[in-house]
Amino acid sequence: MIKNKREHKRAALIYFPQWQGSGLTRELQIGAQTLFDYFHEGSPLRVPLSDEPLDTKYNISGYHPLLTQLKSAEDLLYKNQPEKLVLIAGDCASEIAPIDYLNSRYDGQLTVIWLDAHADLNTPESSPSGHFHGMPLRLLLDGGFDGVPLRTSMRVKSQQVILAGLRDPDAPEQVYIIQNSISVLNGMLGWKQKLLDLVAEKISTYVYIHLDLDVLDPASFPCVKCPTPAGFDSKELNACLNQILDNYCVVGMALTETTARTQEELEPIKDILDTYKRYIDGAYAN
């Protein structure tokens, strides 16, 4: 990984409370609002939600509102051209436009750290549920799905991706990981140093951090859409985030998939949220 010193600069705050990728419940819209209330300051960039019916097409539940919102997010990013951003969002499929935008802006020199209990590598054909939040990383890697009019502007290459905290992959996702030699951090023992070592091995100049909060141990932070046993300790994860922020040029960070309804429910991850706040304020020089 090449360090790239940059001037202190605020990150654009993107608010995208998309929920349709997770099924028929608005839990993630409420959770995104709770997160946003913690961060709300200045003039955030808001991705509007569609009120189109939750139809199923190409085996993607909620296809048309998701397609409309993806286009709205793309338009918002390309109009405003942020150099750095923080995404406060509902479901993981909200990541498609920000990562695609930054990968294109930085000409493919982007390492994507995918902190998630799930791989999000399904296709419409392989998905057991048809929920789009289980497909975004696969769409980013493949650039599109066969027969589906969803496309990214620039494919993310498999060597750009690190999967960390993965505990519940589907069988087709496991096959895809092996076939494409995607870097995966297995197990919880010594995970922090292993992740930092994997980041150091990458040659990309810039870093994007996707954080699905179900990567955390649900025993300490249960307010997530898809809780998965075991997981990272929040304080150790926060220390890891700070080491990455101190040493690499992070151009984007995201928080997704919480169902928290109150600020009190966010208390177990306050250290992480404050790190994101500092990043928004330009506290990190890289």
Rank of each mutant, 00 (worst) to 15 (best):
K3D: 12
N4L: 15
K5P: 14
K9P: 02
P17M: 04
Q18M: 15
R26A: 13
I30S: 09
F36R: 04
F36M: 10
H40Y: 15
E41C: 11
P44S: 06
L49N: 05
L49I: 10
D51T: 15
P53I: 03
L54F: 10
K57A: 14
Y58S: 05
Y63W: 08
Y63M: 02
Y63A: 06
L66R: 04
L67I: 10
L67M: 13
Q69G: 01
Q69D: 09
L70K: 13
L70Q: 13
S72F: 12
D75H: 12
K79T: 14
P82F: 04
L85E: 02
L85P: 02
L87W: 03
I88L: 13
G90R: 02
D91L: 05
S94A: 15
I96N: 03
L102S: 04
R105W: 08
V112I: 14
I113M: 02
I113L: 13
L115N: 14
L115S: 13
A119I: 00
D120Y: 02
D120M: 07
D120Q: 07
D120E: 09
T123A: 07
P124I: 03
P124M: 06
E125C: 00
S126V: 08
S127F: 03
P128E: 01
G130L: 01
P136W: 09
R138G: 08
R138C: 08
L139Y: 05
D142G: 10
D142R: 09
G143Y: 06
G144S: 07
F145C: 08
G147S: 06
G147A: 04
L150K: 00
R151N: 11
S153K: 15
V156Y: 03
S158E: 12
Q159V: 07
A164Y: 05
G165E: 04
G165Q: 03
G165C: 01
D170H: 11
A171P: 12
P172Q: 04
P172D: 01
E173F: 07
I178W: 07
I182H: 04
S183A: 14
L185I: 14
L189F: 11
G190C: 03
W191S: 05
K192A: 10
L195N: 00
V199Y: 00
E201T: 12
K202A: 02
Y208W: 05
L211Y: 00
L211R: 05
D212M: 07
L216R: 08
P218V: 06
V224N: 06
T228V: 13
T228W: 01
T228R: 01
P229W: 11
D233A: 07
D233Y: 02
S234K: 12
S234A: 15
E236F: 00
L245Q: 06
L245P: 02
N247K: 11
Y248T: 10
V250A: 03
E257S: 09
T259C: 10
A260W: 00
R261V: 02
Q263K: 14
Q263Y: 01
E265K: 03
I269C: 05
Y276E: 06
Y276H: 13
R278D: 12
R278K: 14
I280Y: 08
D281A: 14
D281W: 10
